[in-house]
């Protein structure tokens, strides 16, 4: 049984000899090889560049026998594609380039139909990952829930309490 088969069986509640394993934020700062890449490129460059996003996604799988890879990206690529960019504040936390404060601010966002084209790099990264994984490991995509995205878009970033 491949890791991918094990993962999909567990999703379908079919019995498996042991649970599949992956770890949220498995491609992250605890890995020295991630920090080495991060020293050369910003987080946003890593997200947007096909080769870098693929490399970062695969880093934990080279080191550990995990059953799934999760796309290296951020939930805030959606507001960004709608015209509301984001950045990491020097003091920590996330800042949106502006906050949505009125109906007019919302109306000024790009139409939802523009999203897939603006995020074509995400599809390209997933395709490259699919090839790299050769069907052995499960490949996960992700996104934020509408509520959670709205909290960032209306607040203008992460708040003190977070």
């Amino acid at each position: 049984m491949t890791s991918r088969e094990r993962f999909l069986a567990a999703c379908a509640c079919q019995p498996v000899s042991r649970p599949p394993l992956w770890v949220m934020r498995q491609a992250g700062r605890y890995l020295p090889e991630y920090r080495a890449l991060k020293a050369k490129s910003s987080f946003l460059e890593m997200v947007r560049t096909l080769e870098l996003a693929t490399e970062v996604t695969l880093q934990p799988l080279r080191r550990f026998a995990l059953d799934a890879a999760i796309l290296f990206s951020d939930i805030l690529v959606i507001p960004e594609a709608l015209g509301q960019g984001y950045h990491f504040r020097d003091e920590g936390g996330i800042g949106m380039d502006r906050a949505l404060q009125s109906r007019a601010d919302i109306d000024a966002l790009a139409p939802a139909e523009a999203v897939p084209e603006k995020l074509a790099y995400v599809s390209a990264t997933l395709r490259m990952l699919k090839t790299e994984l050769g069907g052995q490991k499960a490949l996960l995509g992700f996104g934020g829930s509408p509520w959670t995205l709205a909290t960032y878009m209306i607040e203008g970033g992460s708040s003190e309490a977070s």
């Binding site: 993962f7 997933l126 699919k130 995509g141 992700f142 829930s145 959670t148």
Partner: peptide, 10 residues
């Protein structure tokens, strides 16, 4: 594009 599953983060 080939995702086997999607995780929604709320």
């Amino acid at each position: 594009a080939g995702a086997d599953a999607i995780q929604i983060f709320d």
